[in-house]
Amino acid sequence: MLITRKLKDTIATRLMVIITSGAVLFFVAIGLVLLVKGLPVIKSHSLTELLTTSNWKPMKGQFGFLTFIVSTLLVTLLALILSFPLALLSSIYLSEFSSQKIKKFFMPVIDLLSGIPPVIYGVWGTLTLVPFIADTLAPHFVDFSTGYSLLAGGIVLAVMILPLMISIFLEVMESTPQDLREASLSLGATRWETTTKVVLKRSTSGILAGVVLAISRAFGETIAVMMVCGNFTAMPKSLFDACYPLPALIANNYGEMMSMPDYESALMLAGFILFVIIIVFNTVSWFILKRIKRSL
């Protein structure tokens, strides 16, 4: 009896350790497979050529990623500029100023925003932002815009990364000990002064971690951005021009290119670039957030 129980225990625990190791290896495997698939195109074209030229003519064997990389960076930057102030201000409000009642009402709102699928954001963008930009906004600045633009992509992405930032900001700010707030208030500081000089000062690294995480989420977002950004292979010259981020490039062309090994390899390389950038960003924010949790 004891022996069977012991045996069961040993088998079960061993099996669980194996599954866990498998999951860790899985993450390495994704990177390796993408890299191996991406290597042929690095061999036939140098990495500098791939990353610094913007000629994208797969049929002629030219694979310059620059347009796509610049598009990805611009869309992400725009999303961050639009959503960071909103996220920071509303997190401060919810963490330091609002009543419990308002907060209780607001948390489900953030949950819902983070739960809405990307494709729904895309539909919303095409229905509202695209026509608004094409008909109302763009004519003031440029001659012609279809509305499917850098700006539309940036706005959609901004809304999508809001809930992620808010939830991290809130967690970080709320980890500030109440004693510190009270000490500051009792010295005669107003609540706003307490917020900026005590809470925000203490939360700077955590806020940074949240931003980094939001950037990496924005880099990888595919469907929603692809639906509103135009997907046109040319360097965007204004906010109202179409752009073509890396994930959209993969989504639009993958599956059709199996007959051309270099083309497939180039798209896999794009996937690998995304993978590496996101791992680096996630790792940075992981260590910052871990240090904050440990100091509690």
């Binding site: 999951a23 860790v24 899985f26 993450f27 994704i30 497979v33 993408l34 995480l213 990496s216 989420r217 880099f219 990888g220 977002e221 595919t222 994930p247 993969i250 989504a251 993958y254 798209l267 896999m268 996937g271 995304l274 993978f275 996101i278 791992i279 960003f281 996630n282 790792t283 992981w286």
Partner: peptide, 16 residues
């Protein structure tokens, strides 16, 4: 690894 896997975009899972 779990936190990193969580951050990997769905398009990468799809391609993989």
């Amino acid at each position: 690894s779990m936190d990193i896997l969580f951050g990997i975009p769905s398009i990468v899972y799809g391609a993989f």
